[in-house]
Design a protein around this nucleic acid. Structure first.
Lengths: 136, 136
DNA sequence: AGATAAATGAGAATAATTATTATTTATTTT
DNA sequence: AAAATAAATAATAATTATTCTCATTTATCT
């Protein structure tokens, strides 16, 4: 038990970090968040384990925002919003992912659909406010 | 007229190339496609002008596939499919983009929605076939 | 305990993209 | 039309995110 836990201490810290945030962070962001509690984890280990988790289906990639790949520990189908101003990525739990469209896609193209990603882009609440201030 | 045309000869070649393909190419792919007709265009010029076109709203980015950003000269809302095996990006004109969901997103979050991107991932027809062969 | 295997740290290597600078090309001014 | 100014480009250096390498640590198995 104790030994087993210790073996994956860093690995678990990375997964726990990702599961405990709503920021949909990049590898670098995970690394920085871990500095407080686990300053002995290297950036390479973060990258390595994120790749591992993804290959295991434990996490998903949301694509890149401003050049950096963003990750999500929630692998259930759900919709995202990306702020083009500040790069924030957030869930839109109020919006239903249109999974039914996947079947239509398969029928019409002969592709085999495995995943679906719906992302809205625009200005988040706080960036929208800032824009108004600057104008007024 | 003549002079004006000449001034933007390379710029136009890049936009024309993107408008004339269904491949949703990367900057590198555009560069390679242009080699036949415009071997004197440098890769930097391709990058520079793609960034310009995007800032002007003439083209859109579809995000990165296998590390490279892909572009689309069709800025109307439409759905895409990305093959996780070969990296092909194709339109799914049969699938209606769920634009109405954008309003719901705005109401529930206070964000200002400006764009919407729906992408299905999986195996394209030809990669699906190859998989079957290997299994049989 | 000794041998084997897995995980990690540190930094080098890679690949995509962006920035810099000199040069070419076009436009405007005189 | 010549000179001056501005824009676009080529070539390449610089940057940034990510991956790879390898020596070292740490754990597991015998």
């Amino acid at each position: 038990m104790e030994a087993t836990t210790k073996q994956f201490r860093k690995r678990n810290a990375i997964l726990t970090c990702l599961r405990g945030t709503m920021l949909h962070p990049s590898a670098e962001m995970v690394y920085e968040m871990l500095q407080e509690t686990n300053p002995d984890i290297s950036l390479a280990t973060v990258y390595r384990n994120l790749a591992l988790f993804r290959s295991q289906g434990l996490i998903q990639s949301l694509g890149t925002v401003n050049g950096s790949e963003r990750f999500d520990a929630d692998t259930h189908p759900h919709v995202h919003f990306v702020c083009t101003e500040c790069g924030a990525v957030m869930d839109l739990p109020q919006v239903e992912p249109p999974l039914s469209l996947g079947a239509a896609a398969e029928e019409s193209t002969g592709c085999q659909v495995q995943g679906c990603q719906l992302t809205f882009t625009g200005l988040c609440g706080s960036c929208k406010s800032k824009m108004k201030e600057e104008t007024s």
